[in-house]
Each structure stands twice: as C-alpha cells, then as structure tokens.
Design a binder for these strands. Sequence first.
DNA 1: ATAATATAAAACCTTATGGTTTCACGTTAT
DNA 2: ATAACGTGAAACCATAAGGTTTTATATTAT
Lengths: 107, 107
Amino acid sequence: MINAASAQPVFRALADPTRREIISMLAVSARPISDITDAFDITRPAIAKHLRILEQGGLITVEVKGRERINRLNPQALKAASDWLNYFEAFWDERLAKLKEVVEDKK
Amino acid sequence: MINAASAQPVFRALADPTRREIISMLAVSARPISDITDAFDITRPAIAKHLRILEQGGLITVEVKGRERINRLNPQALKAASDWLNYFEAFWDERLAKLKEVVEDKK
DNA sequence: ATAATATAAAACCTTATGGTTTCACGTTAT
DNA sequence: ATAACGTGAAACCATAAGGTTTTATATTAT
C-alpha cells in the first residue's frame, strides 16, 4: 500500500473544501491567483495560503510568467491519494471481496 | 462528480495520519477502543476523539456489546472519497486523457 | 456486595488552521 | 518617468484540532 506518512501532505491538502474547489477549477485550466480569487468570497492572501498548501502537497506547480504566476494542476499527486484509497476497494466492492475470499481460502 | 461539500466529513476524517492508520487496522478486523489504543502511543481519550471523527465521516460504525463498543470499518464511505478523486483520473492517466481529447474534439 | 473492566465525558492546554488588514516589490503600460 | 497591475510577505486574530489528566458510569466477574 501507499505509505501513510508520504500521503500526508496530499491528504492534508485535500482536507479543505476551498482547496478541493480550487483543484476542480484548475482541472479545467491553469490560472493565476487573481482569477482564482474572483471565484471565491475570501481574500487573495487566503487563497495564496491555500495555493501554498496545494503546492506542498505536490498538487499544483507554479509557472512564473512576467508578473503573473500560473497555477497548474499536477494530477499525479491526486493519484497517490487515490491509490491509498483503492487499496481498500476490495472492502467496498462485493465482487472483489468474494474474489479475495476465494483466493485467500485456497492457500 | 461527488459534491465537494458532502465529501467534507470524509476528507476531514482522512486528513489525519493516525485516523488513516486506524482505518487500516479496522480493515483487518473490527475492534474495541482499548485494542486500538494499544497500537498507538497516545491516550485512549485521544483515540476516542479520532473514532468520533471517523464515525462522523461515516467511516466506521459502532456496535455496543455489553460494556464493549466494537468499531467496524464502513468501506462505502471510503468509496465516496475515491469517487471524488477518480473524477480526475483522466488527468493523470495518459490513455484516458488521449481518449478524452478525441471524444471532446469530435463534437 | 464488591472489585475490576471498558468506556465516556469534562476541563484544560498548546499549536495549527483559515482568515483578515496592511505594506512592499517587481513588471507592464502610458 | 510614472502609474497601474499582479503578487508576495508580515503581523495579527479567532477558532479548530489534537493532545493531556481527572472524574464518572455502566457492565462483568468474584
């Protein structure tokens, strides 16, 4: 399974609803912070802090372009969290659970 | 996509590494709090708080059995988080991304 | 009946989190 | 050269989060 400790910055980044909305937004297209701020009711510095946490989790990368900084989604980091969760897929998927049972009984 | 707001209690529950370890533990078998506490370096009340948050996220259910309370993993709730993440799968999966491109260009 | 067990609940403490306002700084346009 | 723009950084604040110790309560075993 994906290491629980290494997944920490990603899950931490995913914990806030504003950050998850930012992720959805950046999935459509990369944007500078002012664009993102316009879509929310909070101030730019607040958004800036969210972006920093997303960056620490590896969820976005920043491309400096003149006085603008383009924030771009890095979906690979999302995959890390997905992998952690999918480890438990057998527990929620009836068919996989059955298969698991059979395989484990065989030995 | 899974609503960002409704996913909140789940992602909140997943944000803490101790809680994720508890999830891993309960995936093996349902356990009372004392069992869980033995596996960590923190006090029982601290574990109790984590269990409450897991319960609020729908990640565990509690079965009262005499003076014991058996904590049992509810994998369905994990699936909700997985679903939210998998919405972005096309962004990290090269093949899916290509397919998406083709489909969207067609219209 | 009494002791031991399994747990919850309350009160408290420290640090993290999410937000704000204010100020500073490099880049672009006039 | 100067004004406007896009942004970062610092200082500050209130509340949430994660932990502790202490106290209380119901259930089981002797």
